Simulated assay, not measured.
Amino acid sequence: MLNMDFSQAVLIDTDNVEWIGSPMTGVFRKPLAREEAERGHATSIVQYQPGSVFRPHPHPLGEEILVLEGTFSDETGDYHEGTYFRNPPGTSHAPHSHDGCLLLVKLHQFQLQDLNQISIDTSSIWQSKDAQILPLYQFDEERVYLVRMDQAHMFPDLSLSSSVEILLLSGEARYQGHSLTSGHWLRDPNFSLSSWQVMDKCFIWLKTGHF
């Protein structure tokens, strides 16, 4: 198991995590939290090298993906950089990437009642430089956002619970004395808004109320 104690805060610079191989050639992962090697709860940065293919597989408790770079594909279509999508419990697919891609992937973390399948093109905020919020998803207490912020606009109009997960996509921030730059992943069950400081314009993926 890796980082499965959700009562503890975790901060990881994913740029300093080594890639490890997956069961499929050309697909590599940086595990951030993992219940078992190839099943159960997992949060990872995943890389598909050009031309790589993953075997067809189901998602008993769902799959959540943000495409960070490149284009991810399966039998339902192509998902370009900035696309956020969710495949609910019971779905399956056979993914691949023609030109390669980089992903944030969360597996086996849906509520059983959450059967919504969504795909969102976030290009409006992905290509912008202005401070703004793009709500991506809400189910029960779980909320997911993309947020651009600067020192004048930090966490406006966000409904945050104490449990928060953040992937810093660009910019620089400080949290409880730690410097966060692009690629840092934070999971904190007792997130302190007063401890978050924007040092340079930040673009983050943020999830709250889910653990």
Rank of each mutant, 00 (worst) to 15 (best):
Q49T: 12
G70A: 11
M149D: 00
D140K: 14
L11G: 01
Q138N: 06
W196D: 01
L146S: 02
S179G: 13
V17F: 00
Y137N: 04
V27F: 13
S44M: 05
V147I: 14
L102F: 07
Q49P: 01
F211C: 00
L167Q: 00
I204Y: 01
G82K: 03
E172V: 05
K129E: 15
Q8F: 00
D15N: 14
W19T: 15
G90A: 11
H93G: 02
S97V: 03
Q151T: 14
H93W: 12
S52P: 14
S22I: 07
F139R: 06
G77K: 12
F54N: 15
T83K: 05
H178E: 07
L104M: 13
S97G: 07
Q176A: 11
S159F: 12
H41T: 12
T76C: 08
C202T: 06
R143F: 10
D78Q: 14
H210R: 05
L104W: 09
I204L: 07
K106E: 06
G26I: 03
G209A: 09
K106S: 08
R148D: 03
S128M: 13
P23Q: 14
S44W: 02
T91F: 04
C202G: 05
A37D: 11
S92Y: 13
S194Q: 15
E75I: 10
P88Y: 00
Q117H: 12
H108K: 11
